[in-house]
Design a protein around this nucleic acid. Sequence first.
DNA 1: AAATTTGTCAACCGCGCGTAA
DNA 2: CTTACGCGCGGTTGACAAATT
Length: 269
Amino acid sequence: MGRSPCCEKAHMNKGAWTKEEDQLLVDYIRKHGEGCWRSLPRAAGLQRCGKSCRLRWMNYLRPDLKRGNFTEEEDELIIKLHSLLGNKWSLIAGRLAGRTDNEIKNYWNTHIKRKLLSRGIDPNTHRPINESTIPPSKTTTPSLLHDEPVQFDLAKPDQHQTVKPEPTVLYREEGDYNNNNCTSSETTSEEDCVLNLELSVGPATTRSYRYESTRKANLDSIESTGPWGSELFGAQAGVCLCCRIGFHNESCRNCRVSDARTIWESKIL
DNA sequence: AAATTTGTCAACCGCGCGTAA
DNA sequence: CTTACGCGCGGTTGACAAATT
């Protein structure tokens, strides 16, 4: 069964937005907030479909957007998160304040892919392109979504060189997710603390993924089961993904939930 | 200087999911 | 239980700019 179009396409503007359209949208949202995107265009006096309005607002007009070039830190964070999450741009964007999924997706495709290739790393698998250079003794760890091993050296962001014979993927011990101290015997220094790629956060279940990305989270069920329910954070739930990879972030909902869990456990247990 | 190629990124499209009716 | 709707996501497109020939 086909779906009805999201809006009446006839008489709708398409393509680049004009300053006047931007102003109408901004004025309306300032006044009324983000509401129903479907009805917003008519209410705001725009000849645009709701999806187009939403996109324009989310990707360009939102006041909290960070403009300008990505920093080296952001680059590395994107790479880390991509190795864990794959092309889940909205999840990745959720970890970078002021950046949008679209922006990150574009940036990935135009810059980071090349950057990784110049390092000799396959941007899809995060593995060295020349697999034969990897000693068999080194274990690799499946990435979470595409079930491919992940390897890269984040401690050397600008190494334009062929991949070292020994990938410097380091692992942290289970139970050490809440701090940035590497405990692996292979760890040598703080700078070498890379990702714990043995994270057991599985591919987000559909529901948890939706929970993460939608404003209409079912808070009731969270309150009843606790925000750390396995459904939400995977089989070894308890600490959110940010915390696990060492990016505790106040703007991240799950980090806050993790905090709440800690408090809850300290009271209950 | 003109033509062509390459890079960038805003915007569109189609689909899946959750939910209300 | 079924269906339609609204939202949000990821993939793709295309216009424009910059670089190269």
